[in-house]
Each structure stands twice: as structure tokens, then as C-alpha cells.
Design a binder for these strands. Structure first.
Lengths: 157, 157
DNA sequence: CTTATACCCATTGACGCCCATAATATCCCA
DNA sequence: TGGGATATTATGGGCGTCAATGGGTATAAG
């Protein structure tokens, strides 16, 4: 299972197209690399994106929640109604819908940041600030990337 | 997996390539020796590096957190967006991204320092100073390798 | 008819892939 | 044990491919 990793900034051209970074395209499921799912982040002025496979998986999980619970309704409403399937052209570019662009204050440059199984799209400044904040939190908790990454967690090597 | 041990200095050529020291290449998992992960050290003006397998393990752990929790979001951003997957060519060379080079003040020579399960990349002068400081600190605190090792002698890994 | 978007092809610079070489280390066998 | 054959390392460089980007035209939609 490939992950969305690292950070990339790409320009939005006159026609409104942005290219999804090559590494992100490769992180999409091999049989379905012509489409991504976009939706507003619930927490940030950012767009979130993922493969349609992931949405299907989330749907399954929501289904497993008690069918009469408030959670179920809220999730269902806030997620499924707001989700926007988006096609990529042959070069891996797509159009960011206007309402999402506005939500994320994106003008002519979009910054993609990897979040593992999904990714986010920010305006460049917002992306930097978000990275700094989350990094500060890590430092404050005295956890470093190095120590986290260097722990022996796996047995298959 | 084997450990990243010892210290090596290699040149950066006109094209910006450095070879990962042979011993470090051999310390990578046998099935995945064409890629490493690079990221800024949070504590030093240095780059840290590890195998991509580590990232996958981290991903598993983070994925186990509640999917919409603050922790999940913060970890995802601070790790997945900061991490840079980097391919090695057939000769074991790779390109150090410019922002990482700047972070570590690396120009045309890179010093690799083994840190066990991960490694660091410094500029040669910085590497020397770092070695001296950590050595001095060990001596000052009267912690000798011997005492540390004897504490662990009944842990078998 | 006007506007938007899907599909196609072109360009440019960076990077991956390949082959070459020199220096060093390892091996093998007489 | 010596010495030549072989392997491996760090390094240099040519060249094709691909990524990001630009733009033209057909097609659809309103």
C-alpha cells in the first residue's frame, strides 16, 4: 500500500488546471489512477483528497456504526454529501472546484501535503504555517521524528 | 535489518549526486535497497535518513488512531508531509533536495554518521563538532560505553 | 452562440538509467 | 606466501525519458 508522502507546490494555469504531483499519482490504486475524491477539510482552510477506494472503505466503517446513532448521521451527512469525484486528464491534471478553492484561499498556486493514506491541498502560506504548528507540537512533546522512526517496530527485516 | 554504523564522508558531484556509503546500503532491508527516506532533523542542522520500511510501520501505527482525531492529523502532517522519499541509482547515489542541503549547510561534501536504526547527514565541519560535543557530554556525565552496555547486557536485542 | 471542459500534441528542464574508469580491497592458486 | 585475477567502491559523464507546463481544437452544455 503506497502512501501520500512529502510536499509539492504546483502552479494553476490559465485554464484552472493543476497537476497532481507524480508521487501522489503513483500512490493511487493501480487500477484507478484517473480519478480522485476531493472535499473540504472539516478542521482547516484546506482541501482533502484521496482515492475513491478510500471513500469506499470509510463508507464501510460508517456502516458498521449503530445505524440510529447521531454519529452515523453526522458522518454520513458531512462526508458523503460534500464529496467531489474529480477526473484527472492524461497528464495527471485536474480542476479544483471554485467553492473548494475559496474554502482554501487558493489562487494560482496549490501546495500538496502528504498525510499518509490521504493528502491535503493548501495555499502555499497556509501549508507552511500548518507544518510549523504540527512540528512545534511534536517538539513540545519531546518526540522527534528520529526517535519515532528509529524504534524497532517490525519483525520483517 | 542491520545497523547504520560508523562515519563516512563522500563528495557531491557536479550533478548534485552523493553515494550512500556501501555499509549503509547494506544496512537497508534486502528487498528494498533502491530508496531511502530523508527529513530535517528537529534538533540539529542535519538531515536524518532511514529505510522506507520505517515509514510504512509508522503509517500503520498512525492509522490505528481514530481517523478524525487531533493526534491523527498532527502526526500525519508532521511526519508524512515532512518526509522525502529518495531513489538511489544503480550505483547507490542520490540527490539531496535543496531545502535539506540548506538546512544542513551542505555544499560539496556530505558526512554520513551512523545512528543505529537511522543515520544522519552533516556538513563535514558540523559532523566533527557534533561528535566532539556528544563525546564530551558522555565523559562529563561519567557515562561510559561500558556502563551503558552492561546495563543492557541481558536484553537480547 | 457562448462558455466550459475533455482530449490532444508540443516544449523544456530535470532526472533516471546506463556505461566507463580509477583506486582499492578480496580472492585464488601456483 | 606472493602475485595476478576478480570484485567492489566511489566517481564521471552521455543520453533518453518523464514531469510539469502551455496551448489549440473538438465536444458538450446552458
Amino acid at each position: 500500500m503506497d502512501l501520500f508522502l512529502s510536499k509539492f507546490s504546483n502552479n494553476i494555469d490559465k485554464k484552472g488546471r493543476v497537476t497532481l504531483p507524480s508521487l501522489f499519482r503513483n500512490a493511487l490504486p493501480k487500477n484507478d489512477r484517473n480519478e480522485i475524491i476531493l472535499f473540504k477539510s472539516l478542521k482547516f482552510s484546506a482541501i482533502e483528497g484521496c482515492s475513491s477506494q478510500r471513500i469506499n472503505n470509510i463508507a464501510k466503517k460508517i456502516n458498521e456504526l449503530d445505524i440510529f446513532s447521531d454519529d452515523q448521521e453526522d458522518f454520513a451527512t458531512s462526508i458523503f454529501s460534500e464529496v467531489i469525484p474529480t477526473k484527472l486528464d492524461k497528464e495527471g491534471r485536474f480542476l479544483i472546484p471554485d467553492n473548494l478553492k475559496n474554502h482554501a484561499n487558493i489562487l494560482n498556486e496549490a501546495t500538496f501535503i502528504g498525510q499518509g493514506h490521504y493528502f491535503q491541498i493548501w495555499n502555499p502560506k497556509g501549508a507552511l504555517e500548518r507544518q510549523q504548528k504540527s512540528r512545534e507540537r511534536l517538539v513540545k512533546e519531546k518526540r522527534t521524528l528520529g526517535s519515532i522512526l528509529s524504534k524497532q517496530e517490525n519483525k520483517n527485516d
